[in-house]
Design a binder for these strands. Sequence first.
RNA 1: GGAGAAGUCGCCUAGUUGGUCGAGGGCGCAUGAUUGGAAAUCAUGUAGGCCUUAACGGGUCUCGAGAGUUCGAAUCUCUCCUUCUCCGCCA
Length: 435
Amino acid sequence: MLDIRFVRENPELVRENIRKKFQDFKLPLVDEVIALDTQRRAAIGEGDSLRASRNTLSKQVGVLMGQAKKDPGKQAEADEVKAQVAAQAKRLAELEVEEARLDEEIRSRMLTLPQLLDPTVPIGKDDSENVEVERFGEPLTPDFEVPYHTDIMEAFDGIDLDAARRVAGNGFYYLLGDIARLHEAVLAYARDFMIDKGFTYCIPPFMIHGNVVEGVMSFPEMDAMMYKIEGEDLYLIGTSEHSMIGRYIDQILPLDSLPQTLTSYSPCFRKEKGAHGIEERGVYRIHQFEKQEMIVVCKPEDSKAWYEKLWKNSVELFRSLDIPVRQLECCSGDLADLKCKSCDIEAWSPRQQKYFEVCSCSNLGDAQARRLRIRYKDEAGKAQLCHTLNNTCVAPPRMLIAFLENNLQADGSVKIPVKLRPYMGNKEVMTPKGK
RNA sequence: GGAGAAGUCGCCUAGUUGGUCGAGGGCGCAUGAUUGGAAAUCAUGUAGGCCUUAACGGGUCUCGAGAGUUCGAAUCUCUCCUUCUCCGCCA
């Protein structure tokens, strides 16, 4: 969400930003917002002066009523002042309705205006124009065939999708045995990896109120992702980022408490309504998964540096598990409306001979902070908006695909990288059933 | 889930026959004075949003949230939320 004053003073910049995101249909919103804002300020001005007048007159009534106790003649005077206030009351009531209406009209439009892009974001229409920035590790091609990831898991008796479909429908899984253990091992390893980076481990609520949801994501995302609890003002989180950033709602943080750097664990629930849908097989895109996340709340001038640190953490983590990755920068058209800048870390798939998304790192600038009123006291003691960032540490089901494909050996066993062994009972290798 | 009690300015607290309370006091914090320096002491300041102003400032709104009564509500009414105590139930 943008600052209404910024829109008022820089309408052309806002329009330019909309064009860069190929959302020309939103261009009329700029003038609409500015016109509504003018009306709103006029209504507030008139309303405030009526309220001021009411306050003054009411005080007079108080004084006159006091005097009337001794001098009953003053009662008529008091009644007359009361009548004056009453005469203004109707207009004030109208203005209050008008103010509320205009607030809502403006807000609904402001919520759909995209955040200003960071100047370094490449311009492009959609995800096909995202830009590969750098590769880390050799994308290897083994001289044996790498099976589909669920087939690898089945070789370990590690997955039961049939039962999951019967119990919960498509898009869920049972993980079993070594595969389930590997799932937890990866999470635990990632947790400790981030703790070693100085982040604070956190387990947040897995359900949040609607106002928090509105604060952390845009409407299209919300509609496509969030599950709502029937009859309650509660949504299942789509990522722990939602409850982690929501934690700071309406807070003014002391200067010395920034940056807030946390790594959170949670299950994630997603409808995955929209373009891709749930794939028929596999665990690439599902309704429920678990994730270790990292989030940062910092001063505006620090957010760019934190963005760089965050995505590099993901690269380091994946490389420590012998998985080749690359950084893919989101182009303007593929960037969610709340984000200033974002990149994916993609892991190499030896089976598909291509990279696929495993992490997503984003700098939201002050967009979430403005919606949720997350501020800090600056050096001068003034409240300023913070910046917020988030990045995936690991999201196991998807990470498991990368892990299994890249660590699979010709005999069907899967080697366990040194770093992960303590979390897997010090096993060096996972052996499939019957071997 | 049932029965009681309570939610005020960073913290503690005053404030119920509605008016001079957006709000007093203490602590904490900041600045200044005093001091060789510190402690102590004294003085001043110490929420946020919105509107307005070049600025100083002015106006308005917020005393858990929302609605209502009233010329006027921290103070009265209603609904909701949260916390505490007791009971019940359960990981």
